[in-house]
Nucleic acid binder design. Sequence first.
DNA 1: ACTTTTTTTTAGACTTGACTAAAAATTAAA
DNA 2: TTTAATTTTTAGTCAAGTCTAAAAAAAAGT
Lengths: 218, 218
Amino acid sequence: MFTLAEENYLKNIYHLEHEFQGEVSTNAIAERMETKPSSVTDMVQKLAEKEMLSYKKYKGTLLTPSGRKKAANVIRKHRLWEVFLVEKLKFQWDEVHDIAEQLEHIQSDKLITRLDKFLDSPDFDPHGDPIPDKHGNVKSTEKRLLSEMEKNGRGVCVGVKETTKEFLQYLDKRKISIGTKLKVLGKEFFDGSMVIQVGNDQFFISKKIAENLYIQTN
Amino acid sequence: MFTLAEENYLKNIYHLEHEFQGEVSTNAIAERMETKPSSVTDMVQKLAEKEMLSYKKYKGTLLTPSGRKKAANVIRKHRLWEVFLVEKLKFQWDEVHDIAEQLEHIQSDKLITRLDKFLDSPDFDPHGDPIPDKHGNVKSTEKRLLSEMEKNGRGVCVGVKETTKEFLQYLDKRKISIGTKLKVLGKEFFDGSMVIQVGNDQFFISKKIAENLYIQTN
DNA sequence: ACTTTTTTTTAGACTTGACTAAAAATTAAA
DNA sequence: TTTAATTTTTAGTCAAGTCTAAAAAAAAGT
C-alpha cells in the first residue's frame, strides 16, 4: 500500500523521467512538486527502500519497473477520471485537473476497470494525453499540432493546447471533439490557414486554431 | 478546510447523534471508529475549537449547526457516489461502501452539483438511506420494511436490508430496483407472504423477501 | 457516605511528511 | 588544480493524528 504522498512522488518522477529522458535530480523533483529538496531526499530514500526507484546519493533517481508501473497506474486513473468529468459531467477541458488530482488516489481496481468500460475504454484524455493501459503500457503514438500537418494528412483530434472558453466554444460549434476524425484538404503557406474536412463538412481554419489542436496520426 | 480525519469524525458523530438522540459519549465515538478514547478526546477538543461541536469535559458532545451541516454534506457525497457506483457502474449494493468511503472526501462543490444532476437528483442511496440536500436537510420520511405494510399499501422501493448475491439477483429477475413502485395486493397472515404488483406484473413474495426490502410510503 | 468500577482526560511518545539550517559532495570557474 | 558556486544530504524541529499509561472525574455498589 502506498500513501497519497508516495503516489504523488512516483507520478511526478515518472513525468520528469520522460521530460529529461533519464535520471531525475532531487532539485527537479522539488521544483516540480513545490517542496524543498531536503523533503525530496527523505521521500526518495523511503521509496528506494520500497524498491520503487533506484537511488544513489547525489546521482538522482530512476523508477524501477514496479515503480514505473505504479506511477503509470496513478496516471491512468487521473486521465480516466478526466474523461469522465468531461464526457459525462460536462466539465470543460481546463476545469478537470484539480479534481482528477484527488480522484486519482481512490483505491479500487474494480472501480477503475468499470469506469474504463463505462467510458468505452478511451485511449486519450481530454488534453490529448494517452491513457496507460492496466499494465502500465502507453500507446506511444506521437500527438502533433494540426498546424504541423500537410495537405491530405488525416488524423484524429486527441486534445487541445489552448483551453479558453471561446476556443472550446468554437470547437463545439464546428463539432470537433476528442475522437473527431479530420483531413487536411488544403494549406496556405502565406498565413498557415487550412481547409479541413470534418465529417461531411469542409471549412476554413486559421493558423491560430490549427496551432492549438492536437492530432494523432497513425 | 477540513482534514480527512476531521470529516470522518464529524460524519460518525452525526450518525451517533441520531442513534442516541442526544449527546454522544467519547467511548461511543471510539468504539464506532475503532480508535482509542484518548484519540477521540484530542480530536473532539480540536473540533470544538473550530466550533463544529459543543463539548464539555466528561459530558459528551453535540454537533453545532455548522458541524451538522458539514457532516450532512459528507454523507450527501457518500450516498451520491453510492448511487453512481450502482446505477452507472453496475456495482452491487453491498460492494459500494468502501469505495464511497473514499470518494466522500473529494473536494469540489461543482463536482457534486454535476454528479447530482447526472444521477437525476436521487433522494435515496442504494441502501434506502435518504440523501441530504445541498443545505444538509434530510427528507425525514421513514423507510419501512415491505413486510410491515398492509394490503393495498403503495410505496417505492428505496433499499435492501440483506445484500447477498442471491437476493440481489432475485430482485433483478423481478425487475425490482431503487425507485420501483409497488403495491401490496394481498397478505397472508399465516406465513407473512404477499402478493404484490410491480409495473404490470403481479407475483407472490415470501415473508423472507418482504423482510429485506425497504419501502418508502408517502 | 464511602469504596469500587467505569469513563474520560492528561501527559508523554511515535510516525509521516514537511521544514530550516548547516554540512558534505559535486560541478563550474578561474 | 584550487577556489567558488551549486546541488544534495544530514540533523534537528514541527504539526497532525495516533497510541499507552497514568491520573482524574463520574457513576455504581454496598
